[in-house]
Write a protein that binds this DNA or RNA. Structure first.
Length: 419
DNA sequence: TCTGGGGTCCTAGGACCC
DNA sequence: TCTGGGGTCCTAGGACCC
């Protein structure tokens, strides 16, 4: 058996954790720059606020129903997530953290009743962390996803649902809309509809060859998983990332090279820190910039460029230097830029880097320097120690007008229960 | 006025080689 | 009227996920 544990309305639940006064109030959490709705409490869903909707389109509903609005606070969500995962890890011999709010647990060979196990997990996470979760049990990941959806959907199930036998599997597939199958998105669902495939059950009744032809091996694997045959393996340890990116929209549109460069240098420094955290070095670096695609009234420009690095590196100054140079080569005056990003590619483990004899930088010295930088920034907050070129962020910083406190990761923001 | 960010995998097609 | 064939590697683009 595989279980998929998924936190209910995770970001909204995190915001509620330290604001018990909001327990039954509608909550929404916005994306970076306070742009789109990316999480909703059940009350907000009931009001009809759509997922992904631009915030400015929801202003009326928000005002009318006194919806509580939060900027996203990833420091808080990341910390709550690791607490949830920590509790989950105590229940199963093997766990795969799938996303910030989801984990697969492997119960192969475990004989306890899944229903009881599920309820116990749910109660423990609620008691120890305070986050509500839903749990679906099934023989494959894709079916566990489906079971999880049912656990969430029908309140009488207490957020736990198990697919154990053929009859249950058939019943679930006959109910499950095709667009809700894990791995089948909008485009595929549209094509399915043209083929008169509306439920997961219709899909599994197509022939393997037909599915392979129209939906590639990706579709075929999903079909086999729905039939109870495992195609997606269980990843106990997360595989090292193959690329790492830091990309942001600016709070306001930027026109000067200096302002954009400051942002790009900061993104490069952030990529370098992420590389060091995973103990990798990058062999390539890419920078991209673009104007605001929604503003069709303004001239548009988008460009990206990749550079091969002479020696694989995770050194902040080196990556910042290359990023700045790439930016200069693609930047054009006369446009209003909305977004910039840095991506590091072709990652290799740090301890396998072949030193290039002709590289002038003293690599060992650089490594020690940034070990210290990471330690300081981890203890005292990102940005405590910076390169001069990182600047002040005055021009390009995110808009975050409704950010909550770092309740669990900053001494200054600890909840005061003394009064 | 306002529209997120960070990833993975697969395929088709072109370049290149023998 | 004719213009090989097969293999590998790389990249861009499209699909998906949360």
């Amino acid at each position: 058996m595989i279980a998929l544990v998924d936190c209910n309305n995770f970001y909204a639940s995190c915001e509620r954790l330290f604001r018990p006064d909001l327990k039954t109030k509608p909550i929404v959490v916005l994306s970076n720059n306070d742009g789109c709705v990316i999480a909703r409490s059940n009350e907000s869903k009931a009001l009809g606020i759509p997922m992904g909707a631009p915030a400015h389109e929801c202003i009326k509903l928000i005002r009318e129903h006194d919806v509580q609005v939060f900027s996203s606070n990833y420091t808080l969500y990341g910390d709550i997530s690791s607490r949830v995962m920590n509790v989950l890890s105590q229940f199963a011999p093997d766990m795969e953290i799938y996303s910030i709010d989801e984990a697969f647990l492997c119960f192969d060979g475990v004989t306890s009743s899944p229903e009881e196990l599920g309820l116990q997990i749910r109660q423990t996470v609620m008691k120890w962390v305070g986050i509500p979760v839903s749990i679906g049990f099934a023989p494959t990941k894709t079916l566990a996803k489906a079971a999880n959806r049912i656990a969430k959907k029908f309140p009488q199930l207490n957020n736990v649902f198990v697919i154990e036998n053929e009859q249950q599997r058939e019943k679930v597939l006959r109910w499950l809309p095709i667009e809700d199958v894990w791995g089948l998105g909008r485009q595929y669902s549209k094509r399915m509809a043209q083929m008169q495939v509306f439920k997961a059950w219709d899909f599994v009744n197509l022939s393997d060859a037909y599915v392979r032809k129209h939906f590639t091996v990706v579709g075929l694997r999903i079909k086999n998983e729905l039939e109870g045959q495992r195609c997606f393996t269980f990843e106990g340890l997360p595989p090292a990332k193959k690329s790492i990116a830091t990309t942001r929209s600016f709070g306001t549109m930027l026109t000067s090279l200096d302002d954009v460069k400051e942002a790009v240098v900061n993104h490069a420094v952030s990529c370098a820190a992420k590389l060091r955290r995973q103990r990798s070095c990058a062999m390539q670096l890419m920078v991209f910039i673009h104007t605001n695609g929604f503003r069709t009234d303004l001239p548009q420009y988008m460009r990206n460029k990749v550079v091969d690095l002479p020696t694989p590196t995770n050194n902040s100054s080196v990556l910042a230097k290359y990023a700045a140079a790439l930016l200069e080569s693609i930047f054009r005056d006369g446009y209003q830029y909305k977004k910039a990003g840095v991506v590091v590619l072709q990652l290799v483990p740090q301890n396998q880097v072949q030193l290039n004899l002709f590289d002038p930088l003293d690599i060992v010295k650089g490594n020690r320097l940034f070990e210290v930088v990471d330690k300081l920034n981890n203890s005292y907050g990102t940005g405590t120690v910076k390169l001069a070129a990182q600047g002040t962020g005055r021009s390009w910083k995110l808009k975050q007008e409704r950010i909550s406190k770092k309740y669990t990761t900053d001494w200054g923001d600890l909840l005061d229960i003394g009064k």
